[in-house]
Design a binder for these strands. Structure first.
Length: 358
RNA sequence: UGGGAUGUCGCCAAGUCGGCAAGGCACGGGACUUUGACUCCCGCAUCCGCAGGUUCGAGUCCUGCCAUCCCAG
């Protein structure tokens, strides 16, 4: 009998994941990763992914399924691998996606190593995505529920990780998952989907960064593309490319962030029309569908989570870099965010946006 | 101190022959969302520098005052 470690957050998805794995005949162990100390920080429980309440929900489901259940304290790794990278990226004027790093470094690395120590063959998570073996390679494919597809935040997975991972929800719709949870009396059947950054549940990610590094990011100048002063900003970590809200500037027309210059602590603003660019350069590319980058390929690309795919041509530049040209100019291509490449349902690969072309 | 101009929501700004306060920006709330954003929806001056007056009725007319700006000095 194959042994599986189930990543249980306390939410519906991972609970149903555990149920499905058990039903599929795996010897299951449930586990919750403790990633940060929110109770200590006085952060209200309920809307995060690993609060005490969530842990109790996970434990309750594990008990109901009669599977062993553990809580792993990964707070140190999380702080270093996820929050640290998050803070550093913002300090550079980029906009990171911590979910991607959490998957890459926590769920599919730290947790996998723990799973091995426990003698598990695979790790199962409640992600909406599919893994298929094709010859020697494992392919990452979109979930059946296109609306919930999470491949965007999974694009950094290695072949080894994919080979040791199971996504039982890949073929289900969210409504089916809730139905299963209901049928089995899971207390979290109607629990709200998680959202926001888990370690900044009140939405104050900037505050979380400042608490993390124990320093403040000073106010600076808002300028237009010609360098004319438009006002003062609250510190560069408060902004991202394309942002309109929260500038606190009453100008004749809506203005958006188009550049964050960490070097001189300046945020450049422009009109919406000036936010579009046709190309980008990406680094840290992880090729999933192929071992080495092809000469050049046509793909559908996403520049941020939850945004329609766009036709583009990829020009690889070395093993993990590429220049990508879109057929149509894209709005607010943001350094630090991921660009993920698709061929139909298949994730060809993905990487981090270095800069938008002009 | 003379001459001119202006004074409407936090900012900009419409307000016709007096008829019972547009819009944009900003802001607040919600929806959307396992990142940050974008977007969408809702809300946002019983009051028009102040005080009187004329009118059935005034931000819109009259009088005085106050304030600001510009040109003169």
């Amino acid at each position: 009998m194959k042994k599986a470690l189930i990543a249980m957050s306390g939410g519906v998805d991972s609970s149903v994941c555990a149920y499905l794995m058990k039903a599929a005949g795996y010897a299951c162990i449930g586990a919750t990763m403790r990633l940060f100390d929110n109770e200590d920080a006085g952060i209200p429980a309920g809307r995060t992914c690993c609060s005490l309440d969530d842990t109790e929900d996970a434990r309750a489901v594990a008990y109901r399924l009669q599977i062993p259940y553990y809580v792993f304290n990964f707070t140190g790794d999380f702080r270093e691998q996820v929050i640290g990278r998050f803070a550093e990226a913002y300090a550079r004027g980029e906009t990171p996606n911590p979910c991607i790093d959490c998957n890459r470094y926590m769920k599919f690395d730290r947790l996998h190593r723990r799973a091995e120590e426990l003698g598990c063959d695979v790790v199962a998570t409640g992600h909406y995505a599919r893994i298929e073996r094709q010859g020697e390679r494992y392919l990452l494919k979109k979930a059946a529920d296109g609306n919930k597809d999470q491949t965007y935040v999974l694009h950094a997975m290695t072949q080894e990780q994919l080979g040791q991972t199971v996504f039982p929800l890949g073929d289900l719709k969210k409504t089916d998952v809730r139905k299963i949870a209901e049928e089995h009396g899971f207390a979290n059947a109607h629990k709200r989907d998680s959202q926001d950054i888990c370690f900044a549940p009140d939405g104050d990610y900037a505050g979380a960064i400042e608490r993390y590094c124990g320093r403040c990011y000073p106010p600076g100048r808002f300028v237009d593309k010609n360098g004319n002063a438009l006002g003062r900003h609250k510190g560069i970590i408060h902004y991202t490319i394309g942002q309109r809200k929260g500038l606190g500037l009453a100008l004749p027309e809506p203005m958006y962030v188009c550049e964050i210059r960490a070097s001189d602590n300046t945020v450049v603003l422009c009109k919406n029309e000036e936010l579009f660019s046709k190309s980008l350069d990406a680094a840290g590319l992880n090729w999933i569908a192929c071992g080495s980058p092809p000469e050049k390929l046509r793909v559908r690309a996403k520049v941020r989570y939850k945004h329609p795919e766009q036709w583009a041509t990829v020009y690889p530049d070395g093993p993990d870099r590429a220049h990508i040209e879109f057929d149509e100019a894209q709005r607010a291509i943001t350094p630090g965010q991921a660009v993920v490449l698709y061929d139909g349902d298949i994730v060809v690969g993905g990487g981090t946006i270095l800069a938008a072309g002009r």
